[in-house]
Amino acid sequence: MSVFARVSRLLGAAMVAGAVFLSPLAASAADAVTVFAAASLKDVLGEIASDWKVETGKEVTLSFAGSSALAKQIEEGAPADLFISADLKWMDYVEKAGLVAEGSRVNLLGNRIVLIAPSDSTVSLSIGKGFPLASTLGDGHLAMANTDAVPAGVYGKAALEKLGVWESVKGRVAQAENVRAALLLVSRAEAPLGIVYETDAKADPKVKVVDRFPEDSHPAIVYPAAVLKDAENADAAAFLSYLQSPKAYDRFTAAGFTVLARTN
């Protein structure tokens, strides 16, 4: 298969996987709290929404995509009550547009980025200054979320630049629309290596962590959350508060996130 064909195949898979995820919990009822959240939160937020429904009887509609795509949808008037971004930049974008309810914003979670490979891969690498990423890729490509807009891709590119290896691999990056799409490329062995959040790697048994990126190689990974100014559901603030509860804390930590905001 030619290099062009391989890249086309990789990107085609990423585009399919990169569509907005609608949770099976999504409710048609008008009284559901609608949450727009970064794709890396897909599994854990589904669990927390289920807990919320059991405890309150109330529904949550979950919509997942890259933070950049969600921020633009909110700007264009998409009906959402709550936004959880995978970085500060896209929450700042929404807030500067006057779309965040005053006083509702909170830094909710932290995460880490890792280099992954298919679970049966024999690759062994220690991430550091000038590490041999390009030669380890061989004829393959590096799966990453969009490096210009999607937080996981931005963090990954920043780390590779800081470590002095970006120039050697930038022409061999298969860019996906969100981090879960990048994860899928490696999970399917369509790419030999990828950069995703540690929590994504933990959620997929078909991949393994090769190594963690040093935390000082990229900006701190922070997930801010906020109620949106035009939220139509009065329970939006209550669900945001629930995301900081002990039950949610247990869910987030079990998934591998660092909890930055919590209530007792």
Rank of each mutant, 00 (worst) to 15 (best):
V209C: 00
S245I: 03
N178E: 04
F4E: 14
K129Q: 13
F4V: 10
S124G: 07
L185A: 10
V222F: 14
L88V: 15
T263R: 15
K157Y: 05
G12K: 13
V210Y: 04
P132E: 03
H141Q: 10
E232K: 15
K157T: 02
S23C: 07
L109E: 07
P205D: 07
T122P: 06
G153T: 02
L125G: 01
V222P: 11
D211S: 07
E75A: 12
D92N: 15
D51C: 06
V173Y: 08
M91I: 09
Q244K: 12
A174L: 08
D235L: 05
S28T: 08
K208C: 04
S40W: 10
S50A: 14
A181M: 11
I127Q: 01
V114D: 01
Y93E: 03
A69H: 11
A238L: 09
A201T: 01
T34E: 09
L108G: 09
A236K: 04
N178L: 06
R180T: 15
S67M: 03
P79N: 14
G128P: 09
A26M: 09
A158K: 09
Q73A: 15
F213C: 03
T56F: 12
V227W: 00
W52I: 10
E198Y: 05
V169N: 00
L125Q: 04
A26S: 11
V7N: 14
A13I: 15
S68H: 13
N146G: 05
G57F: 11
T199K: 03
V165R: 05
Y197G: 08
S119T: 08
N233S: 11
A5C: 05
